Measured scan of single mutants.
Amino acid sequence: MASQGTKRSYEQMETDGERQNATEIRASVGKMIDGIGRFYIQMCTELKLSDYEGRLIQNSLTIERMVLSAFDERRNKYLEEHPSAGKDPKKTGGPIYKRVDRKWMRELVLYDKEEIRRIWRQANNGDDATAGLTHMMIWHSNLNDTTYQRTRALVRTGMDPRMCSLMQGSTLPRRSGAAGAAVKGVGTMVMELIRMIKRGINDRNFWRGENGRKTRSAYERMCNILKGKFQTAAQRAMMDQVRESRNPGNAEIEDLIFLARSALILRGSVAHKSCLPACVYGPAVASGYDFEKEGYSLVGIDPFKLLQNSQVYSLIRPNENPAHKSQLVWMACNSAAFEDLRVLSFIRGTKVSPRGKLSTRGVQIASNENMDAMESSTLELRSRYWAIRTRSGGNTNQQRASAGQISVQPAFSVQRNLPFDKPTIMAAFTGNTEGRTSDMRAEIIRMMEGAKPEEMSFQGRGVFELSDERAANPIVPSFDMSNEGSYFFGDNAEEYDN
């Protein structure tokens, strides 16, 4: 993207840094990872977990959730003011799984939030270390993106479920800051804005008074975040219109849905970061690795190297396929839920299948599930090659597409044709070009129609051997075009429920 120079890199967003050079960025990201790792080690000690239990991804998720809940100030305040039966607002906890007599047992633990905050700050040299908290939120978000298709949420806001490739980060909490905003897809931002506008339509006082002023500035800020994701002048001009509207209503909703559809071809720039579970960072720190000293990046080879040398386990339900569970977590670790499966298959070195073909449910185990038949197995999170994460949407291309997802959002900077089903997408653009945004709409449609099938995206960008740390010898991959490109292809993934 041309304006790259004016933006802070995501590592800076990730670490609240002012302008830093590459070495400083690597050190501050490393410091953040160190903090998460030290916190995780301490929690495993508190909970008396064995090494194996500490490497269980379900335990990692519970521990991450506990610290996120302990620092969720708004919710904590709300819980104190609106006490609900049987919930102690000062405590947080969740299921911890232990191996007892050759069987997995679930144990519900409860801790004072104050105590968890103390352990977290102690692991982070006394700081609140917001960057580390956001990092864990993005890992949870990436896992949700890989596990669930947001059909219901899309339909509720009037969008087409086939636009799911635009929904990265749709389950990120509001408090995820600049680093969170960077990884949100165009569809996620559109959905947040539509929800806001709908509230304004239904509630006369939404934009009024002292609160209304705050609401208005939040609305304009979200519009600017979305505008910054678009790469064409016409899309940005249309966002200006939406932002400046005196009284946002149905016309703005129409414009936003139009823009979301246009992003299936004229893709937005959305950041991709490899955020790993805390149970990967903990053992690495415990083994003596100093992330701050060595430096770390979320968008280069580092996460690949770390996963190459990590042992992570997962509980497996009786009829689940461990290899499929591994694929789910591998995609989440690489922030690749909406990437082209052919690119992923090449990088991973084994075939990556669409969601609907995987015999696996989510990673988390519900409290009512029976533990008797639970097994555990090693997650295979290694890769054959590594590639640089991208934040450009890439230019655009036609490809055989599917009944489910009709476009992709690249996660890796790797040369390819970008699949999208042009006739299906263009069919949504018939007729409606009147109104105050008509010239911009016409211009956007013209650009979409001009998108050429034979153009290559990320020209000359390749993948790298894991021994090639400096990215000196790019390998331009070859793809098996007979395979499906979309992950949520004609899909039956479970729906995400809060």
Rank of each mutant, 00 (worst) to 15 (best):
S84W: 11
W139C: 10
Y78L: 01
R261N: 08
Q241W: 04
I194A: 09
N250H: 12
E339P: 04
R261Y: 07
K91E: 07
A403P: 05
S287K: 10
E339L: 03
N309M: 12
V186I: 15
N321P: 00
S353Q: 03
Y52G: 12
I33V: 14
N370Q: 15
V329I: 15
A286D: 11
D255W: 05
L307D: 03
G268W: 10
L466V: 09
L166T: 08
L143W: 12
G228E: 13
L298G: 08
I388R: 03
K325F: 07
I119D: 07
C44W: 14
E244G: 12
N370P: 14
L49V: 13
R26Q: 06
D88N: 15
V343I: 15
E220N: 03
L344S: 13
A2F: 00
G404R: 05
T23V: 10
M371V: 14
T378S: 15
A22N: 08
V408N: 10
E380L: 08
R55T: 08
T157E: 00
L259T: 02
A22C: 00
G5E: 00
D128Q: 04
V242R: 06
D240I: 05
R246G: 10
G212N: 09
D302E: 06
V270N: 13
T151N: 07
S28K: 15
L108Q: 12
P173D: 10
N368A: 13
P277V: 10
V186W: 00
E81H: 10
T146A: 15
Q168P: 11
G362I: 06
A366E: 07
K77C: 15
I225E: 07
G185E: 14
M371T: 06
Q12R: 15
R236D: 03
V414A: 12
L166R: 00
R236A: 03
K31C: 12
T188C: 09
R461T: 08
I365Y: 01
D128R: 06
Q168D: 06
S69L: 04
I316G: 02
I25N: 01
P423C: 06
R150M: 08
K214D: 00
F464W: 00
G180V: 05
A237K: 05
S345N: 11
P410S: 09
A260I: 06
F420T: 13
M238F: 01
E434G: 06
T157K: 02
T147R: 05
R461D: 03
N368Q: 13
C333M: 15
Q20E: 01
I475M: 13
L193S: 15
S141Y: 08
I96K: 08
R384T: 02
I57M: 08
I116C: 14
T188H: 04
G177I: 04
P410H: 06
A366L: 02
H324P: 09
L110F: 09
A153L: 07
G17H: 01
A251P: 06
F230R: 02
A70G: 15
T134V: 14
I301S: 13
E484F: 04
Q149P: 03
E449P: 11
E469I: 09
V190A: 15
N483R: 00
L154Q: 04
Y10F: 13
R150P: 10
R267C: 08
M105I: 10
S141H: 06
F258Q: 07
R236P: 09
M189A: 08
